[in-house]
């Protein structure tokens, strides 16, 4: 495990923060922490990085206790509220952050060229950061996070200031980094983003872990069917796939864990004199799960 926490707790005078969080993240995994604003997601990341001191519990990154300085060489972090020395140019910022990573100057210069290209800031690197738009600031922050070619990347709301194209760019970068075997810890409240890039998801609410699992475990997106001439035979056949199908008029909602079963379901309906007007996976399942989870106690 590259990230492991055991009953990790951080609160501010007994309020806010997070309580007894135990989780583990495997190497090469994209792990998303979902939660409303104020759920404790950023506090959790900042505690893992040693910016905040935990009240109790244990945490390890790459086998070292949280806050271990040398481990940070292998960590990249994009903070949520991106604030850097805005009197520097983008290039100067990256250069100084490279020095903080103890990279040598030649390596820094080469790497700056690469990351500037990756985040799409080519041509803007010599502008002062105070002249950057919000989106550009987020991009230079991402460039700083990936500058040292880290093993683990902590991204706190990485697309919050970006337009739809910027969001897609960042998603593509995340997927590319995932392909390179990087472990990515993603904090977000953008559910679509989570579904598209994550391997596992945890839902945090009021500082407490509510749910954790793979996307498949948490979502198993139901299938919606619209069937003409629906009859008992069809219902019985469908129940072989899901005992708990929901029927409303000619609409059926059922869970199908294996997509390979979908053509067989269609065939079975047609064979039993039914007319299949529509078959589709239900959308916004994660949103439904999220709202149900964080809204449970309200």
């Amino acid at each position: 495990m590259v990230i492991q926490t055991d009953n990790l707790t951080k609160q501010f005078k007994g309020k806010g923060g997070f309580v007894n969080i135990s989780l583990s993240v495997k190497e090469g995994e994209v792990f998303s922490l979902l939660g409303k604003n104020g759920a404790g997601k950023s506090t959790f990341i900042r505690t893992l990085l040693g910016i905040l001191h935990p009240d109790s519990g244990r945490g390890e990154i790459l086998g070292q206790s949280i806050g271990h300085i040398q481990t940070r060489k292998k960590i990249g972090y994009l903070p949520e509220l991106f604030q850097y020395h805005n009197w520097l140019t983008g290039y100067e910022l990256l250069f100084n952050h490279g020095l903080l990573y103890k990279m040598d100057k030649k390596e820094i210069k080469d790497r700056i060229e690469e990351v500037i290209e990756i985040v799409g800031l080519k041509g803007h690197e010599y502008k002062k950061i105070k002249e950057y738009s919000k989106g550009m600031k987020q991009r230079i922050g991402l460039a700083s996070a990936i500058l040292s070619n880290p093993k683990i990347l902590f991204l706190d709301e990485p697309t919050s200031a970006l337009d739809p194209i910027g969001r897609k760019d960042v998603r593509d970068i995340i997927l590319k980094l995932k392909d390179q075997g990087k472990t990515i810890f993603l904090n977000t409240h953008l559910l679509s983003e989570v579904e598209l890039v994550s391997d596992r998801v945890a839902i945090l609410d009021k500082g407490r872990m509510k749910k954790i699992g793979t996307i498949q475990e948490l979502l198993h997106s139901p299938v919606l069917l619209s069937i003409g001439n629906i009859n008992e035979k069809i219902i019985n056949e469908l129940k072989k796939v899901d005992q708990n199908i929901k029927k409303a008029g000619n609409q059926i909602e059922m869970s199908v864990y294996d997509d390979e079963l979908l053509p067989k379901i269609a065939e079975c309906i047609v064979k039993n004199d039914g007319q299949l007007y529509m078959m589709k996976k239900k959308e916004n399942v994660l949103e439904e799960l999220f709202i149900k989870t964080v809204g449970e106690e309200e």
Binding site: R46, L49, G50, I69, R72, P79, Q83, H97, Y101
Partner: peptide, 11 residues
């Protein structure tokens, strides 16, 4: 909030 980015580095 500039220390968030600095203190996550090996310093």
């Amino acid at each position: 909030g500039t220390y968030d980015a600095i203190l996550s580095k090996p310093i």
